[in-house]
Amino acid sequence: MNEHRRKFIQGTGTAGALGVSLAAGLLPTRAFAAWNKGAFSATSVPAVEKILGITGAVNSNQITINAPDIAEDARIVQIEVSSTLPNVQSIKLVVDKNPDPLAADFTLANGMEPYVTTRIKMKETSMVRAFVTSGGRTYTAAKQVKVTIGGCGG
């Protein structure tokens, strides 16, 4: 295994230190998909959309984002996304004004309830955006969450 890993690391010599350590970590656990470094490092919403291939997502009132109007603690902002769209395949969470806007990308197996809740950090007041892929098309909705003291910086 170690030798296998070493070869893999050599093969990814152009990746940053993060990518290398990530690849090394992922090798023994094949159940995990590769981490989309490009999408998670992108610094604008259009760049994230382009990398994920979801540019031009259609606004939908069949997506509900349940999040606070004002975050009490910007380090812990609970975001709940649900949808009445059929056959939902993925739910992506994007915070427009975070340094790296893409926060999470959930892939749901067939028949999963189109619902996910997680907690995120927010740097400043921002739209929080959900992208929901249903039957091969991607739809979007957004909700503003106000932040008084940021959760990302020092």
Partner: peptide, 23 residues
């Protein structure tokens, strides 16, 4: 059988919370 797989970035809060529903 895999029901959910996620990729996360740096914005996820400390001690991450995750909820989902499996039909």
């Amino acid at each position: 059988k895999t029901v959910l797989s996620a990729q996360w970035g740096i914005a996820i809060s400390k001690n991450p919370f995750l909820a989902f529903r499996v039909n």
